[in-house]
Amino acid sequence: MSDSEKTDDALLPALVSSPDMLTRLKDRTDARIALGRARSGLPTRPNLKFELDHAMARDAVYSELDVEGLKASFKSLGFEPIVVKSQTGDRTNYLARPDLGKLLDVDDRHELETEAGGELVILIADGLSATAVNLNAAATVEALKTVCDVGMSLVIATGARVALGDKVAVALSSENVLVFIGERPGLSAADSLGAYFTHKPREDTADSERFCVSNIRDGGLKPQDAARKIADLIRKAVDRGYSGVTKRDGPKQIED
């Protein structure tokens, strides 16, 4: 029986009255259901579990890139990493001013302009979870090297938003940029890495012009599987001459 037909059964009384169904109820959703209650209050254990998950997410937002460790990892993969920063300054300003996280520090931009990026620039960016990058970026890049045979260079950036990759690629005169960036931490996972690929990036690339692979982490999309997906998307973009979607599916065009 497919999911779409299940509500034809008398679902509610079964869920409410039968312990068998209650088990299945809790097993088959990640939602925090059936927490119990103390009068109207949340029992201590689920309350602390929530606090734990939120604390991990908060710490991930304020985590810092392990720049030295990452440099060493990428050197061992044959890269000569360049380290740059955005114009945000501290973390508080990073959160309040996403516009500045998309702009390269002026000195760093000048330095990049003296370098050559090769066919594909990989930007390793902290984003909203440096933890995700520290944990997953090296493994994903290593896996990518085995399935994607193009000339790559690598830049590490702090205070970065996705669109910083466009500026890095333009400064390095590269036709392709792949940004690995820490995703906004959720309560269930604070270590998800996102990958955004842009073919022929410009200063004003729209988000719809990128391919995205998300939830890269051990408990989500494994680095090896993510690498294969990314390699396929890169080939697709280069073959057809653009990344992202041509036209948005969805609501009809509205005139006003």
Binding site: K6, L15, V16, L25, T29, D30, I33
Partner: peptide
């Protein structure tokens, strides 16, 4: 009762959790 994949069971389970 949102569900990441709109799974019918997931929606129903969260729905009941709230109704009670």
């Amino acid at each position: 009762p949102n569900d990441p994949t709109d799974d019918s069971f997931g929606i129903a389970a969260s729905l009941v959790d709230g109704l009670v």
